[in-house]
Nucleic acid binder design. Structure first.
Lengths: 336, 336
DNA sequence: GTCCTGTTGGCAATCGGTTGCCGACCTCCG
DNA sequence: CGGAGGTCGGCAACCGATTGCCAACAGGAC
């Protein structure tokens, strides 16, 4: 029953095998391997040798049972294939693997229900959880946080650790840039209504644009995808604005494509600014002007904070991550 | 010792808690939950109710210990952030999650050593492994396959299950296309020397191009990245060819960028064909003509095959995946 | 009433580690 | 030489499930 399929697998070596080889007890082997110094140095050496010889690998499940530590972290995001998250995933993976832990990825497909279910499924087998752009409400997130350490990314909930890039610097520079080009009326092409980050960006724009003498309207909500961006063009044109800030680069690129298909010149007839600086946003034509969010750092930082909550030492001091304006070619002075 | 960090966590409910609530033994609870019909229907019902009430979640580790099944699959690829793999990861995730299993992702960063180490680290906690574009040698792969069921993607090893898209149809159509445009001398911008898929593509081109009366040279090896593509331009120009087939779209895009920077017109002075049809390859300018590899299907298929090797029933019959030529705008008749 | 069979549930071993506690032995010191 | 203290290693309980085996009991056939 232990092996299925057609091929017979060889069972992995256990500490019992090592113990038998050396005439020791399993507890001694366990200590030799995990508590350096607790055991006579020569014995410890012999244990290590036999372990290597037998190609011994500790069984993480067996260890997890008594210790409660699985050495595994969970990362849940809305959409694994969204290019926005590639750097984040890589950053998180780097730190996790660097600490000898394993990262489990899962996606919620933009659904709060699915997200909750996934989280509950993962929870028993992980030490901590990173929730990116969670679609859950505050209450649900709090409940999860009661079970295991939890760190949010692109979302804030009172009194819970979160990594939220500071959007203000990037937005300020972007608006200064648009203002200096002579734009007076803007639109924000917003993302999903459940997106906390979309609201944050909108609220910030709502503060900052009028302060520069520009009008701004919200168009949306829309799906945070190429398609969502394309859908937006009709309302953008109807609104009469000369520049659009899209919730993210995917929507910006979608909008750009729709413009091309509709014969709207970018940037001469319409300026477009995206968010995040995803892979590919610099090889559209024109390349997208965007507000870069360093999500690779956010991913690293989130994992560091989980480790910190787990009580690990040598976790570096929290690092601020903030958005940065990147001027490319999708913005220009409006035609009069 | 069980809880760390500042917040106290509430311990998860176990089958012992349920048993105590009902005055039953844990074994009965276990059976009620997993062997429908083995237990009196009313008892089973009561167990389910209390389980729901206590918000019971099975502890996967505890289950894995006696059964040897972890309900987890591993997926190792060379580079998590390579857009080529996004669809593959999503496909694999879909099937895995659909079967109620968990997928663990890891990357080898193009290093065979790291790949071997990662595989060994993962192995004890997974039921099966998918290796994408493995940099390991055949012998190492065989050893891993002896421990747990293993399925390869974009790589073949005698007698091991593998999902390898059939490149021939795509390459044939691409070469017919180039030949009909009047190209007579081609280059293949090859990927890493450890890449089995790069060699397969090259070998196929080497068969098919001369058969159409075209010459072909290999330029490389190079890194399978934007950068690798950019590096290639110097040798491409020196070779005097009129068209280049790049190992993948990333390199094709890199080459395209280098062309633009160097003032080489694409497609009029140089035609470029990529591979894989990654996200972004249709919004370069010009959009990249490419040979699409349906890696989403490959991901699904690989996971299906792991399940099959695990002895699961209702695994669909293997599906052939094959590459397909996609004509866009980076190819045209050569200037004479 | 006896025997057989089927249903239902419990006992206890097991998976592979971890760890508190104890005891044997050695060393060192007064 | 006796005792204190330290080092080293083993015993056994425990983590949370699963499962083979058995016992108790019910119902049906004869």
């Amino acid at each position: 029953m232990k092996q299925r399929g057609n091929t017979d697998r060889k069972p992995a070596a256990t500490i019992y095998d090592i113990a038998r080889h050396l005439g020791l007890s399993p507890s001694t082997v366990s200590r030799a391997l995990n508590k350096p110094g607790r055991i006579n140095a020569k014995t410890e050496q012999r244990v290590r040798e036999v372990a290597a010889e037998l190609n011994y690998r500790i069984n993480p499940m067996a260890r997890a049972l008594p210790t409660g530590r699985t050495n595994t972290l969970g990362l849940i995001l809305t959409d694994i294939t969204n290019p926005v998250y590639f750097p984040l995933v890589r950053g998180a993976e780097r730190i996790t693997a660097g600490a000898g832990h394993t990262l489990v990825l899962a996606e919620s497909q933009e659904s709060g229900t699915l997200e909750a279910e996934t989280a509950r499924r993962l929870l028993p087998s992980i030490d901590g959880l990173v929730l990116v752009a969670s679609r859950l409400d505050d209450e649900q997130i709090r409940e999860l946080a009661e079970v295991k350490p939890l760190v949010l990314v692109n979302r804030a909930v009172e009194s819970l650790p979160a990594v939220v890039p500071d959007v203000l610097p990037g937005i300020r520079d972007a608006l200064d840039h648009l203002a200096s080009l002579g734009h007076a009326s803007l639109a924000f092409l917003s993302g999903p209504s459940a997106s906390w980050m979309s609201r944050l960006r909108w609220e910030t724009l709502l503060d900052e644009a009028p302060a520069r003498g520009m009008t701004i309207v919200e168009i949306g909500p829309g799906a945070p995808t190429l398609d969502g961006g394309e859908q937006g063009l009709r309302r953008v044109r109807a609104s009469g604005v000369t520049a659009v800030v899209a919730y993210n680069d995917l929507m910006a690129i979608g909008l750009l494509r729709a413009c091309r298909a509709a014969g709207v010149e970018v940037p001469s007839s319409l300026s477009i600014v995206g968010f995040d600086d995803i892979f590919g946003s610099d090889f559209t034509s024109p390349p997208i002007t965007t507000i870069r969010t360093p999500l690779d750092l956010a991913g690293e930082e989130a994992v560091h904070q989980v480790f910190a909550a787990l009580g690990d030492d040598d976790v570096p001091a929290p690092r601020r991550v903030s958005a940065q304006f990147v001027e490319r070619a999708s913005t220009a002075a409006p035609a009069r």
